[in-house]
Structures are given as C-alpha cells and as structure tokens.
Nucleic acid binder design. Structure first.
Length: 155
DNA sequence: GCCAACGTTGGC
DNA sequence: GCCAACGTTGGC
C-alpha cells in the first residue's frame, strides 16, 4: 500500500519536537487522542513508515517544526485505563478499548520552522486540512504533495 | 432522535 | 482573554 502522510499537533509546553528528539531512541508513543475521527486514522489507516509533520499549536511560532515517521501501528492507548491520569477514560473497557495510539520516531527538525502564516500564503497548500476553518483535529491526513512542499519550505 | 447546554480547541 | 467552531452529553 502507498505510503500516507499525516500532521500531528502538539503544544510544545506539553510535548515539543525537542522532547521527541531527546526521547530514548528518539521515539515516543502518541497518547491522549480522544476524538473518534482522529482515533479512526490512528487505528485503521496509519502504517509503518508513514510520514508525519510535527506541528506546534498554542505556541510561538505556530509552525510545523520538523517531521518524523510512524514506527509502530495502532495499538490500545494504555493511559485510558490509568486512574488519575489526565487521559483516563472511566468508560474504556479492556476487552474493547476505544482509544489507540501509534509510536513515532524523530527524523529531522527544520532549519526554518514552517509557520502557519507561511502555509496560508503558499497557494500549493490552500487545500491543506490544517488551514480549513474550524479544524480542531489533533491528527489529520496531509497529501504527499503537501508533505513534500512543507519539507521543502522547512529546509 | 432532537436540540440546548456545556466543554474543549486553538487562533487571534 | 475572547470567541468561533464543533464534539459530547443528557433531558425530553
């Protein structure tokens, strides 16, 4: 199957591209997605070696700051069962867990963060899901063309 | 099954 | 801090 491309949002105060880079093996599990649409992408569509743009939200600058890849495909998010954890879900059942996560691995940090503003000003990116009104998904698909364009802008 | 109330996200 | 967008919840 053809490689797919994604964009993950993260608030750098919670988890930044540098946090990922400094994680053991430059890898982390992407926990805490609690939206069904995003869950479906994680559980059903993300495949090993898919490309992931890493975006900083609620940050300065607002920008794609680097990229990474999927290294482990969808599996149950353990934090949904951890009482007291910020992502604990009292309704989650072990037999049929509703929430999933993937593992991602750092590839590169951009020399030039690709700001939200710059993406808005790039005609090639006008259909990018991130730029559509009211989009609040924390993980979302991007096309191959969009992915490559953002990488080019970041160099 | 409708819909108002409420909570969250995230840019500004 | 404001507010638009939109998902979720719960009464009916």
């Amino acid at each position: 199957m053809a490689k797919k491309y994604w964009l993950f949002k993260s608030e750098p105060g919670a988890f930044s591209i540098d946090d990922l880079k400094e994680s053991p093996g430059k890898k982390t599990f992407w926990d805490g997605v609690r939206n069904y649409q995003a869950r479906n992408f994680i559980r059903d569509e993300m495949k090993k070696s898919d490309g992931v743009l890493f975006y900083h939200s609620n940050a300065d600058p607002l920008a794609v700051v680097g990229y990474c890849e999927i290294v482990k495909e969808g599996y149950p998010d353990h934090t949904q069962f951890e009482k007291g954890h910020i992502h604990f879900d009292p309704k989650a059942k072990k037999e049929n867990p509703p929430w999933f996560m993937v593992d991602i691995k750092f590839i590169d940090k951009f020399k030039n963060p690709v700001t939200l503003q710059a993406m808005k000003e790039n005609k090639k990116l006008k259909n990018m899901r991130l730029l559509q009104r009211g989009n609040r998904l924390s993980v979302m698909p991007v096309t191959k063309e969009e992915f490559e364009e953002v990488l080019k802008m970041g160099k």
